[in-house]
């Protein structure tokens, strides 16, 4: 299996502060990679760095093409959809307009219409709320909207930042089932950042453990789950 996303010696900066210190990782084509770590380890920063939202050094390759230093919107146009930290909802626009924006770069009208059906099928609640202002949605609904919006791009790679954040456990279960289905049925690769390590390790095939901007551990999820320190610090048994 080849890598769809691959970074080498990736560094990222907030102003003069370096937040990533040379990160190497990959997401396999059709696979799910998860990044674990405590608050402030650099998980969200990694996603931002991949999408060119902050200044970086080092190389990022997507689908065999270097995307380091490209503008965010150009990276998105290659088929990288991010479900950002805080969901990134356009709160003053309706649910439908949010979804239309997700498909903004696409020219195939018929395909977009199909995808509307598809996301409404995946998230029926969005169909009910179709003409409602997105800001009036509950946290869980906004998270669904964020994922649906990302799907409207028909991405090859999805970057998910804490999709379980602030959601009730049942909703989280449902959401992860949907993510699994999207990955299995449509072959969308995923890079998942998650606080909830046991959940993430269930879903993913590979995992990296970040500490203060460096990868301290990496491997298949099976290997990671067996690691003593991960078990104690992140899985709690």
């Amino acid at each position: 299996m080849s890598a769809i996303l691959h970074t080498s010696k990736l560094q990222a900066f907030y102003g003069r502060t370096k937040a990533l210190h040379g990160l190497d990782f990959e997401v396999r084509e059709g696979g799910i990679t998860t990044i674990l770590g405590a608050n402030g380890a650099g998980k969200t920063t990694t996603l931002r760095a991949v999408c060119g939202m902050i200044p970086t050094q080092g190389d990022v390759t997507f689908n065999g093409q270097s995307i380091a230093g490209k503008a965010t919107e150009d990276i998105v146009r290659l088929g990288v959809a991010q479900v950002p930290d805080g969901r990134g909802t356009f709160v003053n626009l309706t649910v439908e307009e949010n979804l239309r924006l997700g498909a903004f770069t696409r020219k195939d009208k018929a395909g977009v219409l199909q995808d509307f059906e598809r996301v409404f099928h995946l998230f029926p609640v969005l169909l009910q709320r179709r003409h409602q202002q997105a800001g009036t949605l509950s946290g869980g609904e906004q998270q669904m909207l964020a994922i649906a919006r990302a799907l409207m791009l028909r991405p090859r790679l999805m970057l998910l930042d804490e999709p379980s954040f602030g959601l009730a456990p049942l909703v989280v279960q449902e959401l992860f089932a949907i993510l699994r289905a999207i990955n299995r049925d449509e072959g969308v690769s995923m890079l998942l950042v998650e606080q909830n390590a046991s959940l993430a390790l269930e879903l993913a095939d590979h995992a990296y453990l970040l500490e203060t901007g460096r990868a301290v551990l990496s491997g298949t999820t099976e290997e990671i789950k067996r690691d003593e320190s991960v078990r104690r610090s992140y899985l709690g048994y």
Binding site: E73, G88, T89, E97
Partner: peptide, 14 residues
């Protein structure tokens, strides 16, 4: 969208 939320707008390719 760009006026309201530039960061999210870039993330949908605007």
């Amino acid at each position: 969208a760009a006026a309201q939320n530039p960061v999210s707008s870039r993330l949908v390719g605007i």
